[in-house]
Amino acid sequence: MMLLENRTAIVHGGSGSVGSAVARAFAIQGADVHLTGRTRASLEEVAASIRGAGGVAHVDVLDVLDRDAVERHAAAVASSGGIDICFNATFNDDVQGTPLLDMPVDDVMQPVAKAITSSLTVATAAARHMVQRGTGVILVMGGGREAIPNLGGSHVAWAALAGLCRQLAAELGPRGVRVAWLLSPGSPEPGEPDPEADRLLLPRRPSYEQVGNVAVFAASDWAATMTATEINLTAGAVID
């Protein structure tokens, strides 16, 4: 039996490297996948690869900062059988490469505002329908807790994202909805040496396929008692 058989999943940012990998993993495990993003051509390419492998995929052009559009999309998906999984893999528009001493406040705050706005918008839109059924899983792609210079507001955004997920989990848990976030140090290009390997405990950061497999586990009944939790895929870059 497939881990996500007869489940419906929404993957926001479904044409990106992480989003497409997660969408493919969900579909391989039996989920009916709804891909969203801002560019139809790239979404259709991912959907075609899923269908070519025997999976089910739908495409919708959507801006996750448009709350009304996100709510309408969630309602349309829910009307055809409910929403079981919501995964947010959208970009946070990070501004990096400059020390905080030299960075304008607006550049620091840009990824914080984007991360919180997008995750809150898609999570609450899906949760409105999940709580009616008393079940559902909300997953968010986060970043590391390493102390790395010149990342601007990225670490601030990831820390804020963890706080948001904890609060959502506290409020939604009694109504049957789980919330978790995946902690990743990024993924190396396939077949290329990993330039970050020297700061890991394991030889290599996770591949996109491995990130997708962990997302499947987190969304499945195998993780039924996991909520308000961070899933550490950093290969030892972050030590818990």
Score class of each variant (00 low, 15 high):
Leu4Ala: 02
Glu5Arg: 15
Asn6Lys: 13
Asn6Thr: 14
Arg7Asp: 03
Arg7Ser: 12
Ala9Thr: 15
Ile10Leu: 08
Ile10Gln: 10
His12Val: 13
His12Arg: 08
Ser15Trp: 02
Gly16Ala: 09
Val18Pro: 01
Ala25Cys: 10
Ile28Glu: 12
Ile28Phe: 12
Val33Ile: 03
Leu35Pro: 00
Thr36Arg: 02
Thr36Ala: 08
Thr39Tyr: 12
Arg40Ala: 14
Ala41Met: 07
Ser42Arg: 14
Leu43Glu: 01
Leu43Cys: 14
Glu45Ser: 15
Ala48Ile: 05
Ile50Asp: 08
Ile50Glu: 02
Arg51Gln: 00
Gly54Asp: 08
Gly54Glu: 00
Gly55Glu: 03
Val56Ile: 11
Ala57Lys: 06
Asp60Lys: 12
Leu62Tyr: 07
Leu65Gly: 10
Ala69Lys: 01
Ala69Ser: 06
Glu71Phe: 13
Ala74Gln: 03
Ala74Glu: 11
Ser79Tyr: 04
Gly81Ser: 02
Ile83Gln: 04
Ile83His: 09
Asp84His: 14
Ile85His: 10
Asn88Cys: 10
Thr90Ala: 05
Asp94Arg: 06
Val95Ser: 03
Gln96Glu: 04
Gly97Leu: 01
Thr98Ile: 01
Pro99Thr: 07
Pro99Ile: 00
Leu100Ile: 09
Leu100Pro: 02
Leu101Asp: 00
Pro104Cys: 08
Val108Trp: 13
Gln110Lys: 15
Val112Arg: 05
Ala115Glu: 09
Ile116Cys: 12
Ser119Gly: 04
Ala123Leu: 06
Thr124Arg: 05
Ala127Thr: 01
Ala127Glu: 02
His129Asn: 00
Gln132Trp: 04
Gln132Tyr: 04
Gly134Met: 08
Val137Ser: 15
Val137Thr: 15
Val137Pro: 04
Ile138Asn: 08
Ile138Arg: 06
Leu139Thr: 12
Val140Lys: 02
Met141Arg: 05
Gly142Phe: 02
Gly142Thr: 10
Ala147His: 07
Leu151Ala: 01
Ser154Leu: 14
His155Asn: 10
Val156Ser: 11
Val156Thr: 15
Ala157Gly: 04
Trp158Gly: 04
Ala160Met: 13
Cys165Thr: 13
Arg166Glu: 02
Ala169Ile: 11
Leu172Phe: 15
Gly173His: 09
Pro174Trp: 07
Arg175His: 15
Val177Tyr: 13
Val177Ser: 11
Arg178Thr: 10
Leu182Met: 12
Leu182Phe: 15
Pro185Thr: 00
Pro185Met: 06
Ser187Val: 01
Ser187Lys: 03
Glu189Gly: 14
Glu189Phe: 14
Gly191Lys: 14
Gly191Asn: 11
Asp194His: 05
Glu196Tyr: 13
Ala197Asn: 04
Asp198Leu: 07
Arg199Thr: 03
Leu200Ala: 08
Leu201Ala: 14
Pro203Trp: 06
Arg204Val: 01
Arg205Cys: 11
Gln210Met: 11
Gln210Ala: 15
Gly212Ser: 00
Gly212Trp: 01
Asn213Ala: 14
Asn213Gly: 11
Val214Lys: 02
Val216Met: 03
Val216Phe: 13
Ala223Trp: 08
Ala224Ser: 11
Met226Asp: 09
Met226Leu: 15
Ile231Asp: 07
Leu233Gly: 10
Thr234Asp: 11
Ala235Trp: 09
Gly236Lys: 09
Ala237Met: 11
Val238Ala: 14
Ile239Ala: 02
Asp240Phe: 04
